[in-house]
Amino acid sequence: MATLKQVARWVPSHWGAGHLVLAGFLALLVLAVSPVIKLDLVVNGLFLGAIIGLGAIGLSLVYGILKFAHIGHGDFMTLGAYFALFLLSDLFPRIGLTGAGLGPFTFGYPLLLALPLAMLAMAVVAIALDLGIYRRLRRRGVNPVVLAMASLGVAIALRGVVQIFWGGGTEQYPRVSKLFYRLPMDVRIPPDNLFVGGLTVVLVVALYLFLTRSKMGKAMRATSDNPDLARVSGINTEHILWWTWAIGGALAATAGVLLAVSQAQLVPIMGWRLLIPLFAAVILGGIGNPFGALVGGLIIGVTSEISTQWLNPSYKPAMAFLVMIIMLLFRPRGLFGAKD
């Protein structure tokens, strides 16, 4: 019987991440033009993947810099989405800000205002949770698994907070139904997905510039690579952690709002349900690699959409899990992860 290590050798060891991505894209291209796969699923899978990717970028940064699996990340998304709901359906109408159906989209211009506020709120919540809970455990020098355990408690408590204020039912942002765009080859795109795609590109470019050009971004990457070396080089690692949480929280809020817009509904369990795809994307991209996480998210999104052609759509989270398990078997460090 072939052992796991022998099986893993089937992937040529000299293959770098570039080869794998290229092979993946080629496979996707072949599949997309073949009559086997509906192009519609591939295209809309990319938009779902962008949302997963936005959540996964923050998760991967936290994982890489704080070195623990932040189970509460899905519920960060939920809380961000519900905070925007509070603004859109409670606070804004009171000061006369209402509207839906802006241009081709289902939502109105208040959402463009609510989104940055939700990002800011989640950045603050994330930092506050770190100061109140994670930092205290860190100072005690606990094992990373204990931190992950604490974040499970945070996840449950956050969902409890959402349910205390909004109940357990489904909610909606103010919206006007719009017709889908019809493209050749039976591709139908909901107009909101253009917003999803556009915003993802803008945020990812901004994050790229931040991480590569700014001093703080460079310091973050240094801390992720080697925390001790970063500290002796004079980097204030506490500040790095704050920035990490702020970026992670803000991106999680964005992903939550976009998910609520594209699915046209909010439920308290929406973020928890996305936790498996999020972690799958992080592991696919290599822990601590934000752009790998985005690529991982896109792969997970497309794979789970394509699977609905043969499987019951409710198996989508299981597909993400399957992709993750295959990755753990053959290349546990991820597509772009550094060699140990």
């Binding site: 604490a150 408690g153 408590a157 409890g160 205390i164």
Partner: peptide, 9 residues
């Protein structure tokens, strides 16, 4: 639900 999470933390 909140209480369960709170107790753990």
């Amino acid at each position: 639900l909140f209480l369960i999470g709170f107790i753990i933390v």
